[in-house]
């Protein structure tokens, strides 16, 4: 526990103690705060609660019953089977595609950005300032802005339609390099590295034996942001691949064509009902939800603020 932490706590404890002697005005503020906090908690949670319950119901139940009624396990199983049967299990194929794209990119991103951020922070080399500045500028370009030229590049290389056309652009993650750079410049001192060098360790040994053991938190951080961003990316794979190669985020929107409620004129004999579509939506974000649950502690700590600070 740091001194600031203790100070924050005692300051808050004081605030709380004084709350008992507050005037009506302060109490009104507090009640207003509470109301706002609860309203927004509902706003953020109700859609998710609804989505969790929907796959346990039939289309009919969904339309007629109370929106928050709980259906049955059997219906959930039936919906699951109907989703799995849809176009010969295309939903599982597309989840597999997403895992391949986001996972492949995650590996390349880490291999590329951890050493790069390390070198930018702790090694003097020619072009260091230029690389750092370029990284900062490129970070500001939204990733959708360059999708068309990247598509044309991939097309010139004959890679469009292959997994590489998604994995390689996903692997370029300047924000990850920047995070690693900040991390190493604030947590590892050059003196420590120099000591290792004097002991006769080569540059790779220094990186591998001194820096890497300290890098776990930033690897987790970069991995988290890369995975979440790439898993949920829609625009780039939508350009690059087609049909059965779509990642799950594109797949769920393509399923809309077979939802009669949204597409009454659809001539297709395959029909996707609301509960099945809700289940597909839920499955499409399950990996990210799991990552969120496991990283819950660092997500709510406000620690990310330190990483983003320039």
């Amino acid at each position: 526990m740091t001194a600031t932490d203790t100070a924050v706590r005692s300051a808050r404890a004081n605030g709380w103690a004084r709350a008992k002697q507050l005037g009506p005005r302060e109490w009104l503020t507090r009640i207003f705060f509470l109301a706002v906090a609860i309203f927004f908690a509902l706003f953020f949670l109700v859609p998710i609660a609804w989505l969790l319950l929907a796959p346990t119901k039939t289309q009919r139940e969904l339309l007629l019953e109370d929106p928050f009624s709980v259906g049955t396990w059997d219906t959930l199983v039936a919906n699951f089977e109907s989703l799995s049967a849809y176009q010969n299990g295309i939903i599982w194929e597309s989840i597999g595609n997403s895992a391949l794209y986001a996972g492949g990119a995650l590996i390349i991103t880490l291999v590329a950005s951890i050493p790069a951020g390390y070198a930018l922070a702790l090694i003097d080399f020619k072009g260091r300032a230029l690389l750092l500045t370029t990284t900062l500028v490129v970070m500001l370009i939204p990733n959708t802005a360059l999708v068309l030229p990247v598509f044309l590049e991939m097309s010139a290389l004959g890679l469009v339609g292959t997994a590489w056309s998604v994995i390689l652009p996903f692997s370029f993650f300047p924000f990850g390099v920047y995070l690693t750079y900040i991390y190493f410049s604030t947590t590892v001192s050059k003196d420590l590295l120099n000591a290792a060098r004097i002991d006769g360790a080569g540059e790779f040994k220094v990186f591998w034996l001194v820096a890497m053991p300290l890098a776990k938190p930033v690897i987790a951080l970069v991995g988290f942001f890369s995975l979440v961003q790439n898993w949920n990316n829609y625009f780039l794979p939508f350009f690059m691949v087609n049909g059965r190669d779509y990642p799950v985020q594109v797949r769920i929107t393509e399923m809309l064509a077979n939802v009669p409620a949204f597409n009454p004129t659809s001539s297709s004999s395959v029909v996707v009902e609301f509960p099945v579509l809700a289940l597909a939506t839920l499955l499409s974000v399950t990996p990210v939800l799991l990552v969120f649950l496991f990283s819950q502690r660092f997500l709510v700590s406000g620690m990310t603020a330190g990483g983003l600070k320039g």
């Binding site: 953020f44 859609p47 998710i48 985020q249 499409s284 990210v288 939800l289 969120f292």
Partner: peptide
């Protein structure tokens, strides 16, 4: 609670 919908960013 405020953070969790971030998992749905994008098409979902």
């Amino acid at each position: 609670v405020y953070y969790i919908p971030g998992a749905f960013a994008g098409a979902a």
